[in-house]
Simulated assay, not measured.
Amino acid sequence: MTHPTRPFQGQSAKSRVQARRQQLLSQAYEIIATEGWRKLSIHKLCAQAGLNKRYFYESFDSLDTMAAALIDDLAEELITIGQNAALGGWQEGMDTATLARHVLDRCIGWMVDEPARTRLLFSSASENPQALEQRKVVIRKMARVLSAFSIQYHQAGEPLPIAHVGSALLIGGTIEAVMTWLDDDVAVSREEFVEDIACFWVAVGDSAISLTRSRGITPTTDAGTEPADKR
């Protein structure tokens, strides 16, 4: 459809479209979190968001497109939290174990403080085919982000395969562990849970470095060096 281009009440046309898009995503989240994917329809969504259906189609082609966008937005929020925590902790000079706890405390906190968004992102997304596909995409993206950071953190200087393998293992395993903890299948406090996961992350990282060296590659592990874009 043709998008409006004129400003209105001080807002540009682009910002109004973005605001309506976010309004629809927020309302969709509320419906899915409380009633499930099967209760979501364009009519219900627009009615509860107080918007005409034409505003739905200015941002999304279908409910499937919107479902993918919702998964992507939630994932981006979590990735941003992790990246900010990692860079902030690194610049403060945290050692590896402290940095792992710091990052995981922020990320796991986001996941457990509002379990509905975690279940939507990593569990109930399977109820919608497009959301399920997007969930796979964002999990791979999370692994790539972690891999890139670990390579930079350890000053490896090249994209080592073990970094990608280890990152996929850590991301997938942590998601499963959080879902298990949310289901009350792990009888530990949140603080103990974060500490446990952080210990596993450090152990996997140390093992990856040892394995890399055993293959004749010697990464520099001066973790106190600032990231290149922050020097």
Score class of each variant (00 low, 15 high):
Gly173Lys: 07
Ala156Lys: 05
Leu24Gln: 08
Ile151Phe: 03
Cys46His: 05
Pro129Lys: 14
Asp183Val: 00
Ala187Asn: 10
Asp222Leu: 13
Ala187Gln: 12
Arg144Gln: 13
Asp61Cys: 03
Phe122Ile: 08
Val204Arg: 00
Arg16Met: 12
Ala143Pro: 05
Ile79Leu: 15
Leu63Ile: 06
Met1Leu: 09
Ala69Thr: 07
Leu74Ala: 11
Ser207Thr: 01
Phe122Met: 06
Arg6Glu: 15
Gln9Met: 06
Val165Gln: 08
Asn52Gly: 08
Arg144Lys: 12
Asp185Val: 00
Ser15Val: 11
Ala203Glu: 02
Ile139Met: 11
Ile209Ala: 06
Glu30Thr: 04
Gln134Glu: 13
Ser41Val: 01
Leu182Asn: 10
Leu51Val: 09
Pro227Leu: 12
Ala131Glu: 02
Glu191Arg: 10
Asp72Met: 04
Arg117Tyr: 05
Ala13Ile: 14
Cys199Gly: 13
His154Ala: 13
Ser12Phe: 11
Gly172Ser: 12
Val165Phe: 14
Met179Arg: 14
Thr180Asn: 02
Cys107His: 00
Ser124Thr: 15
Glu226Arg: 13
Ala198Phe: 01
Gln155Leu: 14
His3Asn: 09
Ala75Ser: 15
Glu191Met: 06
Ala19Asp: 14
Gln11Trp: 13
His154Glu: 07
Val204Pro: 04
Gly205Thr: 03
Cys46Lys: 03
Asp73Glu: 15
His164Arg: 11
His154Pro: 02
Asp196Phe: 01
Ile197His: 02
Cys107Asp: 00
Ile31Pro: 03
Ser207Leu: 07
Ser167His: 07
Asp196Trp: 00
Cys199Asn: 11
Ala148Leu: 10
Ser124Asn: 08
Ile197Lys: 06
Leu169Tyr: 08
Ala49Trp: 10
Phe122Lys: 07
Val188Trp: 00
Glu192Ala: 10
Thr80Ile: 07
Pro4Lys: 04
Thr174Ile: 02
Ala68Asn: 05
Glu30Phe: 03
Ser15Lys: 14
Ala125Glu: 01
Val138Thr: 11
Lys14Gln: 09
Tyr55Gly: 06
Val137Gly: 05
Ala163Glu: 03
Leu51Met: 10
Ala33Glu: 08
Lys44Leu: 14
Ile108Ala: 09
Phe200Gly: 02
Ser207Gly: 12
Ile79Ala: 11
Met179Phe: 09
Gln155Gly: 09
Thr65Glu: 10
Gly10Arg: 12
Thr225Phe: 01
Ala49Leu: 07
Asp185Phe: 05
